[in-house]
Amino acid sequence: MEFFSEFFSYLGGTAPSIAAQGMIWGIMAIGVFITFRILDIADLTVDGSIVTGAAVCIVAFQSGMNIWVAILLATLAGMLCGLVTGLLHTALGIPPILAGILTQQSLWTVNLMLAGSSLSFTFFEQDQLLVVPLEERIGNTDLVLVGLVAVVIAVLYWFFGTELGASLRATGNNPNMSRAQGINTSFAKVLGLVISNGIVALSGALLVQYSNGYNINMGRGAIVIGLAAVVVGEAIVSKISSGFIPRLIGVILGGIIYFLVYQLVLFFDIEANLLKMLSAAIIAVFLGVPYLKKRYGKKKAKKEVKTNA
C-alpha cells in the first residue's frame, strides 16, 4: 500500500514535467511522422536538425533576440537542413537514408561551429524563456506547449488538405501514379523533408529552453524516440479513428507515453541507459507485429480456401 501511494504521488508530482517533455518530443515526432508515414522515407537528418534548432535558438536568443524570433529562426534553420537532405536525395540520386545520414554528419560540424559543444542559459535569461521546467512555472510551460501543439496540428491539417499537400500524400503513397498525374515527386519529397525538419528544429528550440541549455549530444537517438512516439501513438489511436487530426494527437500522446515510461524507469532505479534499447525494441515490435499478423493472416486465408475447394 505504502509503495503504491509513494508511486502515485511520485507520478502525480512529475506529471506536469512528463507532459511537457512528452509534448516537446511529440512535436518532434510529428516531424518524423511526416517523413516516415506520409512520404514513406526514414529521415535520419532529425538527429542533427533537432540540435541545429537548439543551437540556433540559444545563440540567437543570447545575441539579444526575442525568444519567439529565436524559435522562428531555429525552425527556418531546420527547414534548410531538410532542403539539403532533399536535394542530396532528389538531385543527386542518393538513397534517402544515406542522404539523411550525410546531412546529420555535416550538421554535427555546423552545430559545433554555431554553438560549441555546450551552452547554458543564465539564471537571469531563464525569465524570458517560454518553456521552463521550474516548479512554479511548469503549469504555464504546459499551457504554452499545448498551444504550440495545437497550432502545429492545425497548420498541418490545413496544409495536407490543400492541393499541394495532397500531392505530397500521393507521392508518399504511390510515386508512379503521382508522376502520371503530373505531380513533381522530387519537389514533393524535398518540400516534405523541409517541413518535417522545420518542425523537428522547432522542437529542438523548445527542448533547449526546457533543458536550460544546449549540448552537442542532445539529439543522439532522437529519430528512435520520434519513431517510438509515432508507432505507439498510432497503435492507440488507430482503434478509434483514422482521421488526420486524431493521428497527430496520437503521435503527441506517444511522446507523452514515452516520458511516462522514462519516469517509471527512473522510479524503479533501472539503469536509464536501458531505455535506448527499450525504445528500439518497442519500435521493432510495433512495426513487426502488424507485418507478421498480415503474413500469418494471409496463410490462414489460403488454407481456408483450400479446404473449401
Partner: peptide, 27 residues
C-alpha cells in the same frame, strides 16, 4: 494507377488537377 491509402474521391481530385499548378486551394 491509384494511391491505395487515399480515398476514392481524393484520388479523383488528384487526377482532376493534372497539368495544373497545385497550390493552396482545397484539394
Amino acid at each position: 494507377g491509384t494511391a491505395a491509402d487515399m480515398w476514392v474521391e481524393e484520388n479523383l481530385a488528384i487526377a482532376d488537377r493534372r497539368g495544373k499548378r497545385r497550390g493552396f486551394s482545397w484539394a
